[in-house]
Design a protein around this nucleic acid. Structure first.
Lengths: 332, 332
DNA sequence: ATGAAAGCGCTAACAT
DNA sequence: ATGTTAGCGCTTTCAT
């Protein structure tokens, strides 16, 4: 049985409240006593019980970071930023992976709620965020939200996709397809709008048959690419909704011996570290991942520690085009 | 203020102990009362407080998975297996990243201990595991351990490195270097032993100057490769202690325009998903990642739920050579 | 079948 | 400066 403050108190013939004071560095304990309390705590191998502490303090000093998929390095990189930012402010972070399942998301949220985390950062996809608001704790959503009871941090998806599409056009590609995902309708909408408007802005036609949607994975990227080929409509470039999809397309294109970037142009989204490897050299729209994680954690913790002063807010960050060799420069 | 069982009791004019019984599905509550208790709980939006529950039950139904670096997909893949296995058995998993810092590891362990997790799965590197044993809770170490108070799961590092080296020899490479890491001495030792013995078994000389050690990262892989080049001793192949290192070496070799696999052979360790991408095609020694995570979680949870029956044990799994195009087949 | 009471380990008034 | 007491939300005897 792990020793408690009562054990320490007993060993010294004093009360546990004095021990508590000493251990928490509160005043009202003689230096001498404090010293010996600390010593016996050490001797006994005392470890404070955060559970009990949390029960009385009504806070767990813990936040949850819930994402759909840690297999995507994108979320891992954000998680690191969240983790270190939270840690620096004395908060623990619990990482949860919902595997793109809404069911699982609800389960995880319930669990976190039961464990009385002090707040939640979540990549969630629904339009209706009421179930998040009803949690009664601060939530930062890494997607746009219309709900004033929530904060959100996201990038300008429209601008990102616009830049991607425009760049492909400037490179000289003729028919540009879009491969994305149905899993995150909000993100899809922003990006496909950007894609469409860039086409229009450059006098291109938008052909809905050149849009294929699946999941956010290599496999799905490959599959969508095959599907597009199967339509028979020619295309020589593709904007992908994230880098995992782009890597899948890349894989299939290599397999088909379509030369990249000469015959085929490719651009991804996120700038996961794999995109930057020399074997990959994937052009992509980089998200400020560290900044996203850091801002999310800081905002959430502000919301937790000072709920009165801190207001919910929606932050929009800017993505950035990173050119690598999967696209070719315009030869005019 | 979140409603408690007392609120439910009050609303119904009964005691909270009856509410507790009803909510936990214990017998001794009339079906009718139970029904209305469940209903009011629903109405009030009651969420059980896992903190309070944990305090009286003395278990948190939570395990911690502590690894050095989630930037390495290897650990992410194991984490997923741990997570799903634990989840299926009703346990939550807390993921912790120590960033290869022993300091940070101690901090995380302390935190987990204070939060009264029921057990820990950890990738730890020390020879002396007494500080893990002294935690007084079940620990599964993903490294060998001499301590009978701990369980461990690892692969046969010697065999893996032997197979890697032997394969390079069979491919016809002449001078085989080793690039590894000082961060995990136990793993290093097993693997470098396997490397040496394979060399010896094939009548090759072991040259310590062909061994470079750094960290487990792309950057370090590149650096070590440069260091080896700087020695002036020729080498035409390298066994890498993990895939991240191998990718770093790969990067540098490409940059130097050394042709892979014709002029230069490369083999990694772990088989992270990047190794299998067609742009990469890294030959590697695959670890049974899912099995590692699953076994670790199952063993740990057995240890937790049935400490009497379950004994600590050391499990050694077998790695497997996966041949891809970064090595060339022997032309005899 | 239900209630009363104790206690998990801790903090925080309120005494003294 | 130190002790006493109550209580956080819950489970669990032990009564009734």
């Amino acid at each position: 049985m792990a020793p408690t403050i009562k054990d320490i108190a007993q060993a010294l013939g004093i009360t546990h409240s004095t021990v508590s004071r000493a251990l928490n560095g509160r005043e009202g304990v003689s230096p001498k006593l404090r010293q010996s309390i600390l010593e016996t705590a050490e001797e006994l191998g005392y470890t404070p019980n955060a559970i009990a502490r949390g029960l009385v303090n009504r806070q767990s000093k813990t936040i949850a970071f819930i994402v759909p998929d840690f297999a995507n390095p994108f979320f891992v990189e954000i998680a690191r930023a969240v983790n270190s930012t939270a840690s620096a402010r004395g908060f623990k972070t619990i990482l949860c992976d919902t595997q793109w399942s809404h069911q699982e998301e609800l389960k995880q949220i319930k669990m976190m709620s039961e464990n009385r985390v002090d707040g939640i950062i979540i990549k969630s996809f629904g339009e209706d965020d009421s179930y998040l608001v009803n949690l009664g704790l601060p939530v930062v959503k890494l997607n746009p939200t219309a709900d004033p009871g929530l904060s959100s941090i996201d990038i300008d998806n429209h601008a990102g996709a616009f830049a991607a599409t425009e760049y492909l056009i400037q490179c000289g590609y003729e028919q540009i397809a879009y491969i994305g995902s149905l899993l995150d309708p909000q993100t899809l909408q922003g990006r496909i709008d950007g894609y469409r408007q860039a086409l229009r802005a450059h006098g291109r036609l938008y052909d809905p048959r050149l849009v294929a949607l699946g999941e956010y994975s290599l496999e799905s990227g490959s599959r969508c690419y095959q599907d597009l080929l199967a339509t028979g409509i020619p295309f020589d470039a593709v904007v992908c909704e994230n880098d995992m999809i782009a890597l899948g397309v890349y894989t299939s294109a290599l397999h088909d011996q379509r030369e990249i970037p000469a015959q085929f142009g490719l651009i991804g989204f996120d700038d996961i570290f794999i995109a930057g490897l020399p074997m990959t050299q994937l052009t992509t729209i980089a998200q400020p991942k560290f900044q996203i994680g850091e801002s999310a954690a800081n905002l959430l913790i502000d919301l937790i520690v000072d709920p009165v002063q801190t207001k919910n807010q929606s932050i929009i960050l800017n993505p950035e085009l990173v050119v690598r060799s999967t696209t070719r420069k315009l030869v005019k």
